[in-house]
Amino acid sequence: MITFLKLLFSALLIWMCYVVITTSIASNLFKEWDFLGGIPWMRATLWDFYTNVLVIFVWICYKEKTIFSKGTWLVLLVTLGSIASCIYMLVQLFRLSPGEGLKELFGKQHG
């Protein structure tokens, strides 16, 4: 299961980097913001995104011991979104010792 998760989050990370880079090349978010900010679904998407960031950050606060680590991950989540989420999951997966599984992935604290 851990190997599958490593492959899954690696694939998601690569996919999201591709999507963000190609979208950034095709469209400048800052030039389009006035239009996008007026769309109700865009506002709903932003509320959804930041709610998800909060949920993931609460878990990170449990997992990480230092305020520096917690703050760093919060900044990364807010600025990079799912790219940072995938990176965090991969870090957690690669921190596991041989023989550790999902229980340790979700419950083991670091710091």
Rank of each mutant, 00 (worst) to 15 (best):
S69K: 01
P98Q: 12
I14S: 13
G111T: 02
I25P: 01
T79S: 15
N28F: 10
W73K: 00
D34C: 03
R95W: 14
V58M: 03
L96N: 02
T22K: 14
W59Y: 11
V75Q: 04
M89H: 07
V20L: 07
P40L: 13
I87H: 00
E64T: 02
D34M: 06
T66Q: 14
C61L: 14
S97N: 14
K31E: 11
D34G: 11
F94P: 03
E104T: 10
V20A: 04
E64S: 05
V53Q: 00
L90R: 04
V75Y: 06
V91K: 13
C61W: 02
A26H: 14
F94I: 11
L5H: 05
M16T: 07
I56C: 01
L74T: 04
G38L: 07
L46I: 12
W47N: 02
V58R: 09
H110I: 03
I14K: 08
T79F: 15
T22L: 04
E64L: 05
H110F: 15
F4M: 06
S85Y: 04
L5T: 02
I60L: 10
K31H: 15
I87V: 15
D34E: 15
E64D: 13
F35Q: 15
G81N: 11
L93C: 12
S82R: 06
I2D: 02
I67E: 07
L90C: 05
W41M: 07
W33V: 13
L80Y: 04
G101A: 11
S10H: 01
T51K: 15
S69R: 00
A44M: 14
I60S: 00
K70V: 11
P40S: 05
I56T: 06
M42C: 07
H110P: 02
I25M: 10
P98F: 12
L77R: 00
F35K: 09
A44V: 12
F4C: 04
M16Y: 07
I87P: 00
A84D: 00
C17K: 07
Y18S: 07
I14F: 07
C17E: 13
E104P: 01
E100H: 13
R95I: 05
L96M: 14
L76V: 08
I2A: 05
L102K: 08
S85C: 08
L102Y: 15
W59L: 10
V58A: 09
Q92Y: 14
N28Q: 09
G71P: 02
P98M: 13
W73L: 01
A26S: 15
L105H: 10
I56Q: 01
C17I: 15
L36A: 09
L8E: 01
E100G: 08
T45M: 12
S85P: 02
T72G: 12
I14E: 05
C17F: 14
V78F: 08
A26L: 04
T45W: 13
S24A: 04
V19Q: 12
L5Y: 10
T45L: 10
L80C: 07
I87R: 03
C61S: 08
V55E: 01
W73Q: 00
Y18F: 14
E32S: 13
I21D: 10
L46Q: 08
V55C: 04
D48W: 04
I39H: 14
I60P: 00
L7K: 05
A44T: 11
S82E: 01
